[in-house]
Design a protein around this nucleic acid. Structure first.
Length: 279
DNA sequence: CACGAGACCTGTTCGC
DNA sequence: TGCGAACAGGTCTCGT
């Protein structure tokens, strides 16, 4: 499910109790249940179960697509990868289909880490510095300027689609928001990063911020059975809109593969010299 | 460094 | 109805 806006929505809900979620800040952990070993990246299960006991949730934040739950002594970090989700309830609901980790609070409330595909990972760390060390800047951080972004692009020679998906370049974008950003910026996803002009770089950064803010405002995108509550999926311009008319020019949206990922473009609005050859 | 392929996993949808 | 292929919000590793 989750890209930056979905993780941000979850973090806010866990912190404040918004969107019918039960807030977890202030609750004390009684015990944890690890139902799929590989979900836990660090430390080992024994240590994890032992040292998390009795810790109190102090805050919930986000970095890139990581959820960072600050506890009394340590930080519980969760990456939802493709199909992970968080449900907080007193008893499992029908949304809890594939629980991999359950955190039991002393008052009976439980946090379920639900993850059908088992790609998600959890860490319990003293601090997050090392885990987050290789992440690129946060796109919504206003200290990132268009000029700096242009320099970042110029310093690499990669296709925009692949580069924007690279978390060490820019942190938080995934397949949906990259496709939507490139559409807003009228850039073809195969465009080489070092061929992007300063004006185009500014348009791209603006497009990225626009779709991320819109995603957050709409509480994220809820596709298929994964994740609930958001409605950004009803406002996609190109993502999963193959065959539908482009909202700007009416040309049918096409789907191509770049970096092994389905990629959606308007072949007219996002023209590229290669597209003439590709057909 | 850049890129493609393959892993890691389960579930849904689509075509025959 | 059945069955296999393709596909899915992500990231890591390996070979070229």
């Amino acid at each position: 499910m989750p890209e930056l806006p979905e993780v941000e929505t979850i973090a806010r809900a866990l912190r404040t109790g918004a969107k019918e979620t039960i807030e977890i800040v202030g609750r004390e952990i009684d015990r944890v249940e690890l139902l799929w070993e590989r979900t836990l990246a660090e430390p080992d299960a024994r240590t994890f179960e032992q040292i998390i006991q009795g810790q109190i949730v102090e805050d919930v934040g986000r970095r890139a697509k990581y959820l960072a739950i600050q506890l009394s002594e340590d930080v519980l970090v969760i990456h939802l990868r493709m199909s992970g989700d968080i449900i907080v309830a007193k008893e499992p609901t029908d949304e809890v289909t594939h629980p991999r980790l359950v955190i039991h609070f002393k008052d009976g409330v439980k946090l379920y880490f639900n993850d059908p595909r088992k790609f998600g990972r959890v860490w319990l760390l003293e601090d997050t510095a090392q885990l987050f060390a290789k992440l690129g800047p946060e796109p919504l951080d206003e200290s990132l300027t268009a000029a700096q972004f242009h320099e970042m692009l110029a310093g690499r020679k990669r296709q925009l689609k692949a580069l924007l998906l690279d978390q060490s370049f820019l942190a938080g974008l995934g397949n949906i928001y990259v496709d939507e950003s490139l559409f807003l910026a009228h850039l073809h996803p195969r465009t080489r990063s070092d061929e992007v002009s300063p004006v185009q770089a500014e348009a791209l950064l603006k497009g990225i911020r626009t779709v991320l803010q819109e995603g957050i405002r709409r509480n994220g995108a809820s596709i298929d059975w994964v994740y609930r509550g958001g409605d950004f999926q009803n406002h996609f311009n190109v993502y999963q809109q193959t065959g539908e008319p482009c909202p700007v020019c009416g040309t049918p949206i096409t789907r191509i593969i770049i970096a092994q990922r389905g990629t959606h473009i308007c072949p007219n609005c996002q023209a590229h010299f290669d597209s003439l050859i590709e057909g």
